[in-house]
Structure formats: C-alpha cells, structure tokens
C-alpha cells in the first residue's frame, strides 16, 4: 500500500522566511503600539513631544529597563524573579556601604555593588536549580530577605553620596555634552545591547530558550540544566546590582525602604514585550519596547495631569490588552 507523506511534509516545507517575517511582525506590532501611544500623547499635549521630554522618558526608563533585562532571561527559562526590586535597594545600600562607609573608590565600589547583586542572584539560582524550590517561592523569600537586610545594614536611614560627586555622575552626568543625554541612558543602552547579544548569540542564550521550551528534554540532551539556571539567575542578579547603582547615583542616595513594586513593573515590561511567562519565547528588543511603553504612558498621563492612581489603572489595562492581543495573534497564525 502506497501512502502519500503529505501529513509529514506540509508544515516542514513552509518556507522559513515566512516564519521569520512573522517573528519580525510581532516586534513590529509592539513597536507600532509604542508609536501609536506616543503619537496620541504628542497630539494631546504639545509639551510631550519635546526633545527634553523624550530624554526625560528615556531617563525614567533606566531602572525598570535594567531590571527587565535580567528578568527577560529568567522568564524565558519559565521562571520568575520577585527579588529584583528589593534586591536593587539592597545593592544600592551596599554601594553606599562600600563607597561612603568603607571609603572604597567609586571605580571599585561600583563593581563590588554589581557583584553583590550577582551574589543575590546566585543564591536564588541555587535555591531554584539545586534545591528545586519553585522560583516564585524562592525569590519571594529573597525579596523579603533583601528588604530586611537593606534596612538592617543601613539602620533604616538613607546613605548619601554627597561627598562623592563622581558617583552621581554615573547616572546624571552627560558623556556627550551636546546631546544632553544622561549617562544612565547610555548605560541602559549598552546593557541592553550586551543582554541582546548574550541572548541571541551565545550558548547561554540558546540554553535559556531551550530550558524554557522543554526543560526535561534539554537535560536529556546532555546539557547541565542546573548550572545554566544558576547562571541565568546570577545574571539577573548582576542586572539588579547595576540597577541599584543607577538608581542610587541618580537620587544621590541609597534609599533602603524602596524597591518593592519595581519587580512587578519589570515583569510587566517583559510581558508587554511579548515574552511568554510559560517560557521558551521572548526577546530583549521586545522587553525594551515594553519598558518604553510603560514610561511613555506614565510620562504622558502625568503631563495630561491624570492622577497617579489612574495611571496604575491604565497600565493594568494595557498589560491585559497587550497579552490578550499577543494570544489572539498567535491563535490566528
């Protein structure tokens, strides 16, 4: 009996540029909605589309954006990291301890604070990958630990960097004088390029997708899933540390009681950017667009004098619409 093989080859024969175009389309759509929102505010208020306000928007994207970079890796593996918000506050405090209290030069204190973030991430990674705690629980616990430690170490008082003008320059200085772009924005851009590179061009990135797509299969393919998960959480911790430096440099002080809530904003940015909470799928460019959508909304609504409470309501609705639209689009293709 001769049976045609049609079932097996139909999809396989589909030209791959079509799939590629579809993936592009998704990013294009996120980008298009960013443009639409931007245009809407520009038409609604003439104070919105000015150069200085655009710089403002970028500046306000820095902290959420940096946190969201690491979170993108974690979420693509199918995990979650709730500790990045208070972890960031703890890293800011540690930066204060290193530079203000211990008197380390800025050039040493900053890497030390970033590495401290990596340490937080390492502990998260070990808890998740080796002790097999659910990521939600492990990082929820770390969220509380970090918040508590930040308050204990700082004795619940802010640490001021007033005597270290070089430190605040990290965020507020302007490397290129003519453009009026704060350094923090440049740092975010560089961090995003690095993260995008790691995710798309290195083994770490490939295994990040692979673990999120099918963890058991990845392990059976001879990949040390445990180790790579530890690396992913550690990486998220490093970005947390960087965010801690950027926020404290911007404020001129380490505020131990802050941080809570930033993790959810970062997760929102990642999700709006098209990364699936189920794992296996996502991109850095999407995350950056997601973070920008959030700050454009916050900024625009502020300029239109819409109260903070309503800004949250609108942001919540945007998340619902963004994720639902993504699901509908996927069902259609």
């Amino acid at each position: 009996m001769a049976f045609p093989l049609t079932d097996g080859t139909e999809t396989a024969a589909r030209p791959n540029w079509l799939t590629a175009a579809k993936n592009r389309l998704q990013q294009l759509l996120a980008f298009a909605s960013l443009i639409v929102i931007f245009t809407f505010f520009a038409l609604a208020n003439s104070a919105f589309p000015t150069y200085s306000n655009v710089i403002n928007i970028l500046f306000s994207t820095v902290v959420i954006g940096t946190l969201a970079l690491g979170t993108t890796f974690v979420i693509i593996t199918g995990g979650i990291d709730l500790s990045i918000g208070t972890g960031m506050a703890l890293c800011a405090v540690m930066s204060g301890v290193f530079i203000v209290d211990a008197g380390l030069p800025v050039a040493l204190g900053v890497p030390a604070a970033v590495l401290f973030g990596g340490l937080i991430g390492l502990v998260n990674g070990v808890n998740v990958a080796v002790l097999k705690l659910p990521p939600f629980i492990a990082t929820l616990a770390m969220m509380l630990v970090a918040q508590g430690l930040a308050l204990v170490i700082s004795k619940s008082t802010p640490i001021y960097f007033s005597d270290h003008p070089g430190y605040t320059k990290i965020s507020t200085g302007e490397l290129i004088p003519a453009l009026n772009i704060p350094n923090a924005v440049v740092v975010l851009l560089a961090a995003a390029v690095l993260a995008g590179f790691l995710l798309s061009r290195t083994l770490l990135g490939r295994y990040t997708y692979s673990i999120g797509s099918n963890e058991a299969a990845t392990a059976l393919s001879g990949i040390n899933v445990r180790r790579w998960k530890v690396v992913v959480y550690t990486l998220a911790g490093l970005f947390t540390g960087l965010a801690g430096v950027l926020i404290s440099a911007r404020l001129g002080s380490a505020q131990p009681a802050t941080g809570m809530g930033y993790e959810l904003q970062a997760i929102a940015a990642v999700v709006i950017g098209g990364t699936s909470l189920a794992g296996g799928k996502g991109s850095i460019i999407g995350t950056m667009i997601g973070a920008l959508i959030i700050s454009v909304l916050n900024n625009g609504l502020q300029i239109m004098s819409i109260p903070q409470e309503w800004q949250n309501v609108i942001l919540g609705l945007v998340i619902l619409v963004a994720v639902y639209a993504d699901m509908v689009r996927k069902k259609e293709t």
Binding site: D7, E10, T11, A12, N16, T19
Partner: peptide, 13 residues
C-alpha cells in the same frame, strides 16, 4: 526544513 520551528511541525516530522 532545518530552519522550521519544531513546534509547528507534525508529529511525524
């Protein structure tokens, strides 16, 4: 098609 995404393939493929 080596560039096709596996999730879109049939069971046989």
């Amino acid at each position: 098609d080596i560039r096709a995404v596996v999730g879109g393939l049939t069971v046989a493929s």
